[in-house]
């Protein structure tokens, strides 16, 4: 740690820790990271607790409980820059799927003692609660993008992270389009690049885990999936992954399913 170095905190809400661990995964760079930044809070690696303020706060996980909803407000006030990392924090994550289900039933099915789980009826992205300065997408996030975010912060450049379609990454990598050459439905055209086109490179369609691009043309893509023989339920299922709760995936799923997610007043303030 360097004196006067920017302070960084890493906190988590409802999530699997996978994204935080991406930071530890940057093994080769850990010493350099701690030399560049002052990591004042990192639940996974230190027991240090800092009340803030933070120059940069990385937030993992979705907001699922009332305590969390209150805590994120508190943290926002302490953070100069708040960056959400991973599909849970940016889009509600896989747990957001329960937003479409009957919540109590879900809870009974998942937990042995549902009465102990004081959870909000929905799992919502951090950005539904507070303003977010930057997002690292993905489930889990891409280590390279995390390193770029930190590097850009260190030298003062705009992080070289773009909201391109996965298709751009496929083509640069020389991956042949799985939709055109094999008829596999793929969410790449409406999904943020950043993963390096992992799934198409493994002969699978993109699951959209880096979330919808800002300008995703959903009617056109779902129209083409339906035209090539998928049922409405088949097509809805394609979007019911890690980022289903992020617009415009959310509306698309609701339209295809014919019903929307349970909106809960607690979660939406």
């Amino acid at each position: 740690m360097t004196r006067g170095a920017p302070t960084v905190g890493v906190v988590k809400f409802a999530s699997c820790d996978g994204c935080q661990l991406s930071l530890l995964d940057l093994e080769d760079h850990l010493l350099e990271i701690t030399g560049t930044f002052d990591i004042v809070e990192f639940a996974e690696a230190t027991s240090r607790r800092s009340p803030g303020p933070y120059d940069v706060l990385l937030v993992e996980g979705s907001v699922s409980t009332e305590e969390q909803a209150a805590e994120i407000l508190e943290l926002r006030a302490q953070a100069r820059t708040l960056v959400t990392i991973g599909a849970c924090a940016t889009a509600g994550g896989i747990q957001a799927l329960r937003n479409w289900a009957d919540h109590d039933e879900y809870r009974r099915a998942v937990y042995a003692h549902p009465e102990y789980v004081a959870s909000l009826a929905t799992s919502t992205p951090v950005s539904s609660h507070v303003r977010v300065d930057a997002e690292l997408h993905g489930c889990p996030i891409d280590r390279g993008e995390l390193l770029e975010l930190l590097s850009a912060l260190a030298v003062g450049r705009r992080p070289q992270i773009r909201e391109d379609a996965v298709c751009l990454a496929c083509k640069r990598r020389g991956v042949v389009c799985v939709t055109v050459a094999r008829g596999i439905p793929c969410l790449g055209p409406v999904t943020n690049a950043g993963c390096g086109a992992i799934c198409p490179a493994m002969d699978r369609g993109c699951y959209g885990c880096f979330g919808p691009r800002p300008e995703a043309n959903m009617p056109s893509l779902t129209g083409s999936f339906l035209a090539s023989g998928g049922t409405r339920a088949d097509v809805a299922r394609l979007f019911e992954g890690f980022t289903a709760y992020a617009e415009p995936f959310r509306t698309t799923v609701s339209d295809l399913r014919g019903r929307g997610p349970e909106e809960d007043a607690d979660a939406q303030q």
């Binding site: 926002r76 953070a79 300065d133 930057a134 850009a152 003062g156 992080p159």
Partner: peptide, 23 residues
């Protein structure tokens, strides 16, 4: 806007961001 998120982030480095608590 395109890249808005990272844009704001960069504002912080520039010292231009005067952060007010948001809720």
């Amino acid at each position: 806007p395109p890249g808005a998120l990272s844009r704001r982030l960069a504002d912080v480095r520039r010292g231009a961001a005067t952060e007010e608590p948001t809720s």
